[in-house]
Amino acid sequence: MLEARLEQSSVLKKVVDAIKDLVQDCNFDCNDSGIQLQAMDNSHVALVAMHLKTEGFALYRCDRNIALGINLVSLQKVLRAAQNEDVMTLKAEDSPDALSLVFENSENDRISEYDLKLMDIDQEHLGIPETEYGATVKMPSAEFQRICRDLSLLSESVAIEATKEGIKFSCTGDIGKGAVTLRQNPNVEKPELGTTIELQEPVALTFSLKYLVNFCKASGLSNTVTISLSNEVPLLIEYEMEHGYVRFYLAPKIGD
């Protein structure tokens, strides 16, 4: 059986908020390394991979591998009943038809108990090879979100170019064009506010802004985001948590 306790409900609430517009039904795979999820969007253009490691749980017990087939819209309805600071306990039998969620406030005088019906989801997993990326950019997640939102008002697509001068996001649309260039600017006192660029080789790729704006819903998970790019392979965007991560992969666009 599974028994997993999070000190703060906000962790799972933020993860579900971050991915629910990309995928609808997915398996939460529970095993002795924690809770993992991998799912593609319906169009097979984007993929989300999530891992909540056992170290991030106040209590974690999972005797055998359990797949929790969850509709994320339904899960979000139940999670609305949890306050951010509540302790959350997830429980499931070995072959469960429901997931039990218990929310307890810090004063220990309120216990909320919910059951979420599970579904059988036949989900295939993709093998994602270890990749040496041509460019890796670490920047404040709020700034990346702002750039994607601003450019999405002008165009459907953004060209991302990483060179030794910096990383340039540019787009062209019906009303005009726009570009934002970030130069390497490490912040010694507050590293989470700085921008660092590791460049092995120049990279130039084009991506759909609709998906990037969607990924930015994970900005609440981390102050920083890591963007990894190589020519002619999918983009990797990672939001690292204290004990886990949410990663998004996005296939590129080619030509005009």
Binding site: M40, S43, H44, V45, A46, L47, E124, H125, L126, G127, I128, P129, S155, E156, S157, T206, S208, V233, P234, Y249, A251, P252, K253, I254, G255, D256
Partner: peptide, 14 residues
């Protein structure tokens, strides 16, 4: 604008 590739052109099903 442009041709959108899909992920299965890069990653294989396990």
């Amino acid at each position: 604008t442009g041709h959108q590739f899909i992920l299965t052109e890069y990653f294989c099903f396990l």
